[in-house]
Design a protein around this nucleic acid. Structure first.
Lengths: 165, 165
DNA sequence: TAGACCTGCTTCGAATTCGAAGCAAAGTGA
DNA sequence: TCACTTTGCTTCGAATTCGAAGCAGGTCTA
């Protein structure tokens, strides 16, 4: 197969590097803000945000892990921390005895609300500052299909457990 | 200050979430590939890539840390691993006695070359697959100013060490 | 309904990560 | 030149992260 490109063209490289760099910097800044505003790590914030957005205020462990692209054991750990802090509650699921349902508490919602404005400010100031409304729109339009593509193809963080040889 | 937006508008939210999600998924996939192709973590790969790109094949520790957005202590650790693996060499800098210069070795270049094709393949297949040439161009054009903005404003991973109260 | 497999979550151990503290070299100002 | 601050890196300890292994509840099929 002599035609598989040995490298990306310069434009692709630029886009790729910029993407990685931008999110690294953004994440770093956001982490800083979350830590001092509410002593939350980025994952914890993501978890609370997802739970807060849910109509029921809850999600299954696995869905949370897949949602934030995190290992299952890591999620167990983080949810444990959140629970210890009273921001979240764990309960056995009704229909599936194995499943654990995580629900955000009032304290969790309160903290989330307290932290959000600062979070928004950081994201606005760093990510959106140099972008016009149209730019933002274009960016969203570009990334949406990429996300869908990535989610569909080889996504699951829990790959088939082991294929027998 | 009643006019600081309490939230991002839906389009911004979509762009922000997509950005985070896309890079998380991409990073995850890339990490997988690098691990099995050359037993490298993503940071290690980034470091080797940066060194390989440099005209001299070397960089100062601090510049590497800032470049890949990594803590200094973390960099010390990772460079230690790379050095132990013979992929990189540490040497005192000529002009500044405190500074340490990291240089990629031939083995490092070899491994980098061995790992790159698979890396490119993953990035192509996941990130660029759903994007046209124009899309990629647009993406690069959008992200470049954002990166520059982030790099300029409050960037340094090593903030002023401590301001006396 | 038994046997085999799959799924959801947790536990465990090892590796990584970061910030704070420390050390030495450089810069700065009087 | 002497203090004081800054900068570059490393060490240290604590917290996080992941994968492998384990356990229990589901599912499927004969």
């Amino acid at each position: 197969m002599p035609d598989s490109p040995p490298s990306l063209d310069p434009v692709q490289l630029g886009a790729y590097f910029a993407l990685v760099e931008v999110t690294s910097l953004l994440r770093h800044a956001v982490e800083q803000q979350l830590k001092e505003a509410g002593d939350l790590s980025y994952v914890q914030f993501q978890l609370l945000a997802r739970l807060g957005d849910s109509p029921t205020g809850s999600h299954r462990m696995t869905d949370l892990a897949d949602g934030v692209v995190y290992s299952r054991s890591g999620l167990t750990y983080q949810v444990g921390l959140l629970e210890k802090a009273g921001l979240v509650e764990r309960s056995p699921s009704a229909d599936d005895e194995r499943s654990v349902t995580v629900t955000i508490t009032d304290a969790g919602r309160t903290l989330l609300a307290a932290v959000l404005p600062g979070h928004v400010e950081v994201v606005s100031g760093l990510l959106f500052e140099p972008l016009s409304r149209d730019d933002v729109h274009a960016l969203a339009e570009l990334l949406a299909p990429v996300r869908d593509h990535m989610r569909s193809a080889p996504p699951r963080s829990a790959a088939p457990r082991r294929r027998k040889s």
